Simulated assay, not measured.
Amino acid sequence: MRKPLPRLAVLSVATALTTATLSACGSAGAQGSGVNVVASFYPLQFVSEQVGGEHVTVTNLTAAGAEPHDLELKPRQVADITDAQLVVFLKGFQPAVDDAVKEQAPDTSLDVAKTTELTKPEEGHEEHAEEGDHEHDHGDLDPHVWLDPTKLAEIADGVADRLAKADPDHAEDFKANAKSLGEKLTDLDSEYDDGLAKCDSRDLVTSHAAFGYLAARYDLHQVAMSGLTPESEPGSGAMKQIMDYVEEHGVTTIYYETLVSPDVAETIADKTGAKTAVLDPIEGLQKGSEDDYFSIMESNLSALREGLGCQ
Rank of each mutant, 00 (worst) to 15 (best):
G195K: 04
A84N: 02
P4I: 06
A63I: 03
A30P: 00
E123V: 10
P121E: 08
L214G: 05
L61K: 00
G92R: 05
T62V: 15
L110Y: 02
F93H: 13
V246L: 09
L110K: 05
G212L: 03
L8E: 14
A96E: 08
I296K: 09
E117D: 14
P4Y: 11
L90D: 10
G288P: 03
G309M: 06
L22W: 12
M239I: 15
F294Y: 12
C310N: 04
K120V: 14
G212W: 01
Q104C: 00
L73E: 07
G235S: 09
A197D: 15
A153D: 11
G284S: 14
V47M: 07
M297P: 05
K102D: 13
A153T: 06
V205P: 02
I254K: 06
K74Y: 07
K184C: 01
Q286M: 12
F89S: 06
D194L: 10
K198A: 12
D244F: 03
T15F: 13
A265R: 10
A265V: 05
A100H: 03
A129W: 06
L11Y: 13
S302P: 04
A209I: 05
Q50D: 06
T150D: 14
A215E: 08
F41R: 03
H55S: 15
D173L: 05
E126G: 11
E257Q: 13
L8H: 11
V205K: 00
P121G: 09
A216G: 10
G250P: 01
D270G: 11
E191G: 09
E283C: 07
G235V: 03
A178H: 09
E67L: 10
E247K: 15
T59D: 07
L259A: 04
S207D: 11
E257D: 07
A129L: 02
V223C: 08
H170T: 11
G92P: 05
M243Y: 04
P168T: 06
S40M: 01
A129I: 04
